[in-house]
Nucleic acid binder design. Structure first.
Lengths: 193, 193, 193, 193
DNA sequence: TATGAATGAGGCTTCATTCAT
DNA sequence: TATGAATGAAGCCTCATTCAT
C-alpha cells in the first residue's frame, strides 16, 4: 500500500531525474507524472533531497542484486564479467534511468549527499561490495590479477559508464548491447591474471 | 588584459562548477570568488550557460594539448598510455577542476549543451580526436588491438574518470598519482594487441 | 473562484499599467496591490507579458460590448455616436484604466505584442469591428459619408483618445463627461454625409 | 560644436526611443549608434530621463515651427488645416520618429515627466499654443466653430495621431500621405463654423 | 573631452515547501 | 490521505550611472 506507492514515486523520480537532471525536475513535474498532488508527495518523502537519496539506494540495490545473482552462480570470472556486462546493457536497454541516474544526479550533485557518511559514497556501497566480491573471488581463483581494488573497480565500472555516456550522446552507431562482447572482453583483458 | 580577465573568470568558474556542480554555483558566488560585481561578469560572458560552454572548451583544449604533446613523441603505445596517465594524474593533483568539470558538469548537464551541434559532444572533440589518434597509431603499429574506437575510448577515459571520481569521493587511501602505474598498466592490458 | 481571482488580478494590473505604464509597474507592485505573494501571481498568468496581453483583450472586449449594445439599438448614427461618446466618458469616470490602458500600454509598447498575429492589432479587433459596423451602417443609411474606414476610425477614436489624454494630463477644467455633447457633436460633423 | 553634438545625440535618441520605446533603448545602444562611449553621453546629458525630456521639447518645437510657418501664411483655416495635415504626413514619411515619439514615449511614460510643471504637458506647450492660434484665428474669422479648445485640439491632433498609430500597425493599405486629403477634409468638417 | 570597465540595485521568474480544507 | 493555492527566498540577468585613466 503505502510502501508500494512510495516505490512507484521513486521509480518515476528516478526516471525524471535521470532524464532531465535533478535541478530540471521539479516536484510539480513529479506530481504530474504520478497524477498526484504536490502536497501528497510530501506525505511519502520529507524532501526532494531525500527523494534523491532514496533513489540512489534504490538504483544501487537493483544493480547490486543483478550482480549478486551472477556472483552466486558457479562461473569463471571471465564469464561473470561477461554476464554482468550483458545484464548491464540489458538494464540500459530497458531501464536506462537506473544507470543514467548515477551519471546525471549522483556524480554532479555531490552536495546533496554531503550530510551522509562517506559523503554519500556509502549509498552505493551495496553495489560496490558486490563488485569487490566478484573481483576478490577472481583473484582467489587466480583468474584475475591481484591489484588495488579501486583500480580494478575503475576499469570495470568506468568502462561501462563510459559506454553509457557515449550512448547518451548518440555517438554510437548501434545499440549498446551490440558492443557487449567487445566491452566485456576488453574489461576481462584488463583484469585477468 | 580583457582576455586575461576572461580567462581568470573561466578558471574560477571551472573550479567552482567542478567542486559544487553547475546548479549549485551561482553567479553571485562566482562574482564573490572573483571579487567582482555580479553585473561585471556579464561584461565578459553573456550568460551562465555560455560560461559553462567556454569552460568545457577550455578544459578540453588543455587535456587535448597535453595528449597531443605525448602523441607527437616517438614512443610505443604502452609508453604513451603511461605518460598520459601520469600527466592526467598530474593535472588531477594541480588542477583537479579541469578533470572534475567533465565528471560533474559536462557528463551530467547535457541539456546545457542542447543547442550545440552534436548536443555538445563536439565541444570535447579536440580531446576525443587526440585519443583516437593515440589508439589508431597503436593499431597501425600493431601494438594495440583493433576494435571499435568507442570501446577503447571508454576503457581508457572511463578508467581514468573512475579513479577521479573515487578520488573526489575520498575513498582512495593515497594520492591519485600513486596509482598511476597500476592504472596505466591495466589500461594497456585492456588495449594491447 | 480561480477564474474570479484571475480577473481581479487583471483589473488590478490594468489599473496599475494604465496609471504608470508597463515598465514602471513591477510584478511585486501588482502582488502588493493584490495582497498576494509574487510567486502566486504566476499561478494565474505565466508571465508579465501574458498579463498585458490578457488585459488588452479584457479591455477591448468591454469597449466592444459597450459599443455592441448601442449598435444593436434602433438609433440614428448621430444618436449612436452620441450614446457611445457618453458611454465612453462614463467608462472614463468609473474605470478610466480601461481606456488609458490603450493609450499608455497598447499604443506604446507594440513590441510586447510582436509575437501575436497582426503584431497584436487583432487583440483589439473585436472593438475595431464594432466601430466598423457603426460606420458602415451609417453609410448604408446615408447618414454618414462614405470614406476610407481608417480615416473615420481615426476621427472617432482619435478624438476620444485625445480627450482622454488631456484628461490624464489634468489640463481639462471640468470632468470629461462635461464635454461629451460637444465632442460627440464634433465627431458627428466630421463623419456626417 | 558641443551644441551640435548634443543635437545629434538628441536625434539619435529620438529615433531609437520612438522605434523601440524608452525602456528598450539603453544608453549603450545610444552610444553605439553615436559611435561614442557610454560615459561621454553623460557629458552632454545628465541622465537618460533628461535626454527623454529634451527630446520631447525638440520634437515639439519641430512640430511647432512647422505649424507656425503655416499659421504665418495668409490662408483660410481650411487651407491651413490642409497644409498642416500634409506637412504632418511629410514628417511621418521623412522622420516618423518625431511623431512616434509622442505615441511611444510621451504617452506611456508620464512618470518621466512627473517632476515637470503640468506633469510635463508644458513640454509640448510650444506646439499646443500654435494649434490654439490656428483655431482661434479661424474662430475670429468665423471660419471655424467656437467651442472648447481642447475638444478642437482632440479632433485635430487625435485624428492625426490615430492615423499615425494605424500606419505603425501596418493596417493601412497605402502610404499615409495618400490619406492626407480625406483626413484634412474630415478634420475641417469637424471644426468648421 | 573621451573611454569603457565596474558597480549594484532591481526586475522577472522559479520552485521547494507549507497548510487550510 | 489528498489537494493545490500560497509563500518567499533566491537565481539570472539588465542597465543607469560612475570613475579611474
Amino acid at each position: 500500500m503505502k510502501e508500494r506507492k512510495k516505490e512507484s514515486i521513486l521509480m518515476a523520480s528516478l526516471r525524471l531525474f535521470s532524464r532531465n537532471g535533478f535541478h530540471n525536475t521539479t516536484i510539480p513535474i513529479i506530481a504530474k507524472e504520478m497524477k498526484m498532488s504536490v502536497g501528497n508527495i510530501y506525505n511519502y518523502f520529507p524532501s526532494k533531497n531525500n527523494l534523491a537519496k532514496c533513489a540512489i539506494k534504490f538504483a544501487a540495490s537493483i544493480l547490486a542484486s543483478t550482480l549478486r545473482k551472477i556472483n552466486d552462480k558457479d562461473l569463471t570470472s571471465k564469464e561473470k564479467i561477461h554476464e554482468f556486462t550483458k545484464a548491464y546493457y540489458d538494464i540500459i536497454e530497458i531501464s536506462p534511468e537506473i544507470i543514467e541516474y548515477f551519471l546525471r544526479v549522483y556524480l554532479s550533485n555531490r552536495s546533496l549527499f554531503d550530510d551522509e557518511k562517506d559523503g554519500g559514497f556509502a549509498l552505493a556501497s551495496e553495489f560496490v561490495d558486490e563488485v569487490k566480491r566478484l573481483i576478490d573471488d577472481g583473484v582467489k581463483k587466480r583468474e584475475l590479477r591481484e591489484q588495488n581494488f579501486f583500480v580494478s573497480f575503475s576499469v570495470f565500472i568506468g568502462t561501462l559508464g563510459g559506454m553509457t555516456f557515449l550512448n547518451g550522446e548518440n555517438v554510437l552507431e548501434k545499440k549498446p548491447i551490440h558492443y557487449a562482447n567487445e566491452v566485456s572482453e576488453t574489461i576481462y583483458r584488463a583484469l585477468k591474471a
